[in-house]
């Protein structure tokens, strides 16, 4: 009889721990979201984790977040380095969402899942190499990423082609991250996600 109570208690503790972790982890995720997110909190309030956006993505860019994400486990997210969002013209992920967690996008420039940030220490363009990969691949070329021509120090002939992110235009699709030619010591471009933007004020 008391063994039964111990088992019951153990089961309750398991679920309580799971629940507590979900609550504790709520609002701490940094996940890159699909197009149509209107803010991480808004998204978390509406997403029922049905997975239809994942099943509607023609590039299989979306996957369900892992259990370490707590309350966000099972929500759709993007690993930009593995497979970025292609900003489909008709946004099938947004169309599939039954609860409006993803909504209100019409143009390819509408999504605001985050913005790209370049690490000047590692990006080879800053060292004078002509790379331009992120600039060329950007779906919003010359709008979200522009090339800033800077004179090379101690060199009268050559110019640096510095990719420059326009935070307000960048959709956070992550294609630049996927294609970045550098990965040592780390990939010098990343997406500051909507969640990070909101939490840290963009830092």
């Amino acid at each position: 009889m008391s063994a039964g109570k111990v088992i019951a208690g153990l089961a309750a503790v398991l679920v309580a721990a799971e629940g507590a972790f979900a609550v504790a982890a709520n609002g701490s995720s940094k996940l890159l979201r699909p197009p149509g997110i209107q803010g991480e909190a808004d998204f978390m309030a509406r997403c029922i984790k049905c997975g239809k956006c994942i099943e509607a993505c023609p590039y299989a860019s979306l996957h369900a977040a892992g259990p370490a994400e707590g309350a966000a486990a099972g929500t759709p997210c993007i690993d930009a380095r593995e497979q970025a969002c292609r900003l489909c013209k008709d946004f099938p992920c947004v169309a599939a969402c039954p609860t409006g967690a993803l909504r209100d996008v019409a143009e390819r420039s509408d999504p605001k899942a985050g913005y790209a940030r370049i690490d000047e220490e590692v990006c080879i363009a800053y060292q004078g190499y002509r790379c331009e990969v992120c600039y060329r691949i950007c779906p919003l070329i010359d709008q979200a990423i522009t090339l800033d021509f800077q004179a090379m120090e101690n060199d009268d002939i050559h110019t640096k082609f510095i990719p420059t992110i326009n935070k307000d235009v960048c959709t956070g699709c992550g294609l630049c991250v996927e294609r970045c030619a550098v990965d040592e010591p780390y990939v010098p471009i990343r997406i500051v996600t909507r969640a990070e933007q909101e939490r840290d004020g963009g830092r």
Partner: peptide, 24 residues
């Protein structure tokens, strides 16, 4: 969703249920 999407959310709940059902 585990089968369809590989989502593991709710796994601990299921484990707790199986333990409670089996022994309590």
């Amino acid at each position: 969703k585990g089968l369809v999407l590989g989502s593991l959310a709710g796994g601990l709940t299921l484990l707790a249920i199986i333990i409670a059902e089996l022994f309590w």
